[in-house]
Design a protein around this nucleic acid. Structure first.
Length: 146
DNA sequence: TAGGCCATCTGGTCCT
DNA sequence: AGGACCAGATGGCCTA
C-alpha cells in the first residue's frame, strides 16, 4: 500500500511552519534542512516497512486476503518464536532421537498449516482463542535465554 | 459514520 | 553539526 498524503508532497513540505535558519537566518536554509530530514524519515520508515513485510512472509498468517497489521505481526512473531523454542526444548527434554519427530513438530508450526483459519473472522474471539492456545506467549513472562 | 490502520510531518533527544 | 531515532499530531483510506 503506497499512500501519498495529497496535502503534503515532498517538495512542498516544511513551508507551513517555516522558521529562520539558526546559522544563516534565512528561511530557505531552514526549509531545506527540514525537507531533507523529512526525506530521511520517509526512507527510514520505508526500511521499517520492508522489514515488516519480510517478517510477515515468515510468520503464520490468517489468510491471503488480509495481511497482519504491524502490531499483530510483532505479536505473531513473538508467539511463533516461543512456539518453535518450546518444540526445541521439548525435543531435548524427551531426548527424542527421531528426526521424524522433530520434522512432525515443525510441520505443525509451518505458516501454510494455518490457512484453515482463514475463514475465521479477523480478530474474532475464535481467532484470539486460537492464538492463545497455540502460541500462549505472555509478555510478562518473557525470559530471554542466555 | 466511527474506529482501526497507516503515511507523513514535525520537534525533541541522543549519538557519532 | 548532522544524522538517526522516537513519539505526538494530523488527515486519508477502508471496513463493519
Amino acid at each position: 500500500m503506497v499512500y501519498r498524503r495529497p496535502s503534503f508532497t515532498g517538495s512542498e513540505s516544511g513551508s507551513e511552519s517555516e522558521s529562520l535558519d539558526s546559522k544563516t537566518g534565512s528561511p530557505e536554509g531552514s526549509t531545506r534542512r527540514r525537507m531533507a530530514a523529512n526525506a530521511r524519515e520517509r526512507k527510514r520508515m520505508q526500511g521499517l516497512n520492508t522489514a515488516f513485510d519480510r517478517l510477515r512472509k515468515v510468520v503464520p498468517q490468517w489468510g491471503q486476503d488480509k495481511q497482519l497489521s504491524k502490531y499483530e505481526t510483532l505479536q505473531m512473531a513473538l508467539s511463533y518464536i516461543m512456539a518453535l523454542n518450546r518444540i526445541l526444548i521439548d525435543g531435548q527434554r524427551c531426548n527424542a532421537p527421531s528426526r521424524q519427530w522433530l520434522d512432525m513438530q515443525f510441520d505443525c508450526v509451518q505458516p501454510e498449516n494455518y490457512q484453515c483459519f482463514s475463514t475465521i473472522g479477523y480478530g474474532s474471539p475464535d481467532q484470539q482463542e486460537y492464538m492463545h492456545s497455540s502460541f500462549p506467549y505472555q509478555c510478562d513472562g518473557l525470559q530471554v535465554p542466555t
